[in-house]
Amino acid sequence: MPERQDPVAVLQSAHPEVSAESGPEWLAEVGGVIEAIPYRWLYWPEIVQVRGAVFVDLHGAGRDTYDARLASAVESGHPDRGGEAWTALVDSFNYFEVSEIFRRWGGPQASLEDSQLALAELLLEPWRARLAQAAPDRRFRVAVAEPTPELGVCVEVRQTSPALTPPAGW
């Protein structure tokens, strides 16, 4: 598990010219109403349920896109696939590279991994709450994956119970 990052320390490192010392002070000092509105979807993302699986729709793809992609995977398969392959496919849709969430990264890049880790950690609690609200009959593991050189920092969402059941035709 990656080392936990203090988000205020990350902000202070990136912007030493700002004198804020707490999260609320940072919000008041550098935040803005219009800039804040898009963050609703980051901290309280849409949840899509398709073919018995739950997806965090962070990128706004929508139910039809998930259904089409899953239909393609079901149709292209062979009969010896099992439940583990279905679970791996669903999990692959619920794996988010923090570096891919934004098109731009502001501020100094010296502590990019620290910044990404701080953001990833801040997403865990609201995503857990969102999943519990949207799918109260299911349990999920929401965690920061171990960073890799290829993908960087990632957040993974996995349904832990009940076990995922492959759809007909899988």
Rank of each mutant, 00 (worst) to 15 (best):
F140M: 09
G152H: 02
L151A: 11
A120E: 03
R141G: 11
F140K: 10
R139I: 01
V144C: 01
L151Y: 14
A134N: 09
T148Y: 02
P136G: 03
P126W: 00
G152Q: 03
L124Q: 03
L117C: 01
A129S: 11
G152D: 02
R130G: 05
R141F: 04
R138T: 13
L124V: 15
V153P: 00
G152F: 03
L123N: 01
E150K: 11
R130V: 03
R139V: 11
R158Q: 15
R139C: 12
A129E: 10
R130N: 07
V155N: 02
E146P: 15
A132G: 14
E125G: 10
V155S: 02
R158E: 14
P126V: 00
E156C: 13
L112E: 09
R138L: 05
L131E: 06
E125D: 13
A120M: 07
A129Y: 05
E150V: 14
P147D: 02
A132E: 11
L131T: 11
L123W: 05
D114G: 13
L112G: 02
A143K: 08
A132D: 08
V142T: 12
W127P: 08
A143G: 08
A118Q: 01
A132Y: 07
R139A: 15
F140I: 03
L123C: 08
R128G: 10
F140N: 10
V142H: 09
L122E: 09
P126K: 01
R158Y: 01
A120G: 07
E146N: 12
L122N: 04
E125P: 08
A129N: 11
S115M: 05
L124S: 02
Q133H: 13
Q159C: 13
E113N: 08
L131A: 08
R158N: 06
V155E: 03
E156F: 05
E156H: 07
V142D: 09
E150D: 14
L151S: 12
R141W: 06
R158C: 10
Q116N: 07
Q159R: 11
E156T: 15
L117N: 00
L117S: 01
S115F: 03
A120V: 10
A135V: 15
L112Y: 03
P147R: 00
A120R: 02
D114S: 14
E125H: 08
L123E: 01
E121A: 12
E156G: 03
P136Q: 06
Q159L: 10
L119R: 00
A118V: 05
Q159E: 13
R138I: 02
Q159W: 03
A134L: 06
L124E: 03
E125C: 04
E146H: 13
D114T: 00
